[in-house]
Amino acid sequence: MPRAMPRGLSLEQATRRLAVLLVLPTWVLLILVFALPLAGAIWLSFRNETLGSFVTPRFIGWENYRGAFADPRFWESIRTTLFFMVAGLAIQLPLGIGLALLLHRNLRGTAFFRSALIVPMLLTPVAVGLMWRFMLDADFGIINWALRHVIDSPPNWLGARIPARFAVVMVDSWISIPFVMLMVLAGLSSLPRGPAEAAAIDGAGPLAIFVFITLPSLVPVILVIVMIRVVDVVKLFDILFIVTQRGGPGTATQTLGLLTYNTGFIFFQTSRAAALGVLLTLMVIPIYFIWRRVGRAP
C-alpha cells in the first residue's frame, strides 16, 4: 500500500522536494567527472607545469594566457574551427533537410532508406576514420580512382591544405547528416498539415509552400541542430586524430581542441594546454544562453 502524501504538502511542493533528491546522483557524477577536473585545469593554467616536471613548478599568473594570445597557431586554430562549423553546416543543413523531406514523402521503401541513411552516425568513428583515410589516399584510394574518370587531376585530399580541410568537412558531414536528417524529420512529422494544405488550395507551388510555410516552422529545430553541431565541431577529435593524423598537413586541420591536445600531450606543456582548455571552455559558454532561448522554445 503506497504511503500517503504528507499532510499539508501540495503535489507541487512534494515534487519540488523529490526533485532535489532525484538530481543528487547527477550532481555527484558531474562534480566528480567534470567540475573537479575543470577546477584542476584552471589551477594548472596559472602554473608552469610540464608533463615531465622539467621545470620547478610555480605560479606564473597570466603568462600562459598571454602566450596563447601571442601565438599565431592559437588564432589559426580558431579560424580552422570556425571554418569546420560554417562549411559543415552549409553542407549538412541543406542535405539533411533535403533527405528529411524525401523521407517525409513516405514513398514505398522509406523504412529501408531510413535505416540505410542513419548508418553513418552509428558506426565507430575510429574505424570509420581509418577507412576514410584509406579511401582518400591519393595513390590507392578508391575516391580519386573514381574521380579520375570525371576530372583529370582530382584533389590531393590529405596532402594539400584546402582539400584536407574539405576532406574533414566531408567525413564530418558523412557522419552528421543523418543526425540533421532525423531531427528535421521529427520536426516535419510534428507540423500541423493545415497551413500547407490551405496554401496548396490557394494555388501555392511546392517550393513556395516549403519556403514560406514549412521552413519557418522548422526554425526552432534548425536552431537546436546548429547548436549541437557547433558544440560537436568544437569537440571534434577522433576524425582529426585519424583521418588527417592530428591536424595535418602542417596545421591545416588543427582545431583549438586539437591544439590543446598537441600542446598538452605532444609538447608535454601541461599548463599551457590547460590555459588553452580554459579559453576553449569560455568560448563554449555562450552555447548555454542560446540553449536557454531555443532549447525550451514551446
Binding site: 608533463l51 558544440v231 582548455g277 559558454i285
Partner: peptide, 16 residues
Amino acid sequence: GLILTRAVPTIVLMVP
C-alpha cells in the same frame, strides 16, 4: 552544469 558537460571537450579535462 549539464550544458557545459555536453559542450566542453573532454580533452580539456584530461590531464587533471
